[in-house]
């Protein structure tokens, strides 16, 4: 399964995002090396691997938060490497950052309104806001409250909702299950299922490998900043393969 060439990874979906030969360096250290994969329209692509594998860095490079030392990121046929984060957000990519990064002193509604800033068009903003609130009814109830008083799971829902009101084509999620109780993790994945059903493509970075491999159309395993192998949902039960993915052959 390993060593796939860049491209559609066998998918028949129209290509939305393509990462080719990506390298990100922090000083002398390469956090990501020669990474290539692509995401089709409506697909969910998982990225798993041990701590320090370069998963979050990959998302940050797509979003323009860290510069790419080499390689390109192409979104909807346009090269977005080197663009500012705000320009990439406004082109239809939304990131749910690790640790959620909601604005705790702002109300839930203000947090959601900030999500609207990245919309490509103001048309349909009210409709999308209603849809997102239907998806997360708890946020509708807590609209006027300070976001900081929400529980961890509710804050994660707010972070995802804030990304969705921007009406993105591609949703990047960085460890959405981190620090959440198992039942809340299930709730988050149920929500992501609905997001997928709505036709939004997803790149899901996760520590919970098993859950991610089952959920995603395919999952890339990273180790030490490099691509190690690609797994399909069928591989989720294969313990030997999982062990090889994480600990090497």
């Amino acid at each position: 399964m390993s060593g796939r060439e860049p491209g559609l990874d066998g998918s028949t979906a129209e290509e939305l995002l393509r990462i080719a030969g990506l390298e990100v360096r922090y000083g002398d250290v390469a956090a990501v090396r020669d990474l290539s994969f692509s995401v089709g329209r409506g697909e969910v692509v998982g990225v798993v691997g041990p701590n320090g594998a370069g998963k979050s860095t990959t998302l940050h490079a797509i979003m323009g938060v860290v510069p790419a030392a080499a390689g390109t990121v192409t979104f909807q046929g346009e090269r977005i490497t080197g663009l500012k984060p705000e320009a990439i957000a406004r082109s239809g990519v939304a990131l749910v950052p690790e640790g959620r990064h909601i604005f705790p002193h702002f109300t839930v509604q203000e947090n959601l309104d900030l999500g609207l800033v990245g919309r490509r068009s103001k048309d349909g903003a009210a409709r999308d806001m209603e849809r997102v609130l239907d998806l997360f009814p708890i946020l509708r109830d807590f609209r006027a409250r300070q976001a900081g008083v929400l529980s961890g799971g509710q804050q994660q829902q707010l972070a995802i909702a804030r990304a969705l009101v921007a009406g993105p084509e591609l949703l990047l999620l960085d460890e959405p299950s981190l620090g959440l109780a198992p039942t809340v993790v299930d709730l988050v994945f149920d929500t992501l299922d609905e997001v997928r059903a709505a036709g939004v493509s997803i790149v899901l970075v996760e520590q919970r490998a098993q859950l991610t491999i089952e959920f995603a159309d395919r999952t890339h395993v990273l180790a030490n900043g490099a691509h190690r192998m690609t797994l399909s949902p069928d591989d989720a039960g294969d313990e030997a393969l999982m062990a090889a993915a994480y600990f090497g052959d």
Binding site: M63, E86, A89, L95
Partner: peptide, 10 residues
């Protein structure tokens, strides 16, 4: 940083 990720122009 989060503001920019949401599309706020620095």
């Amino acid at each position: 940083r989060t503001a920019r990720i949401l599309g706020v122009r620095a």
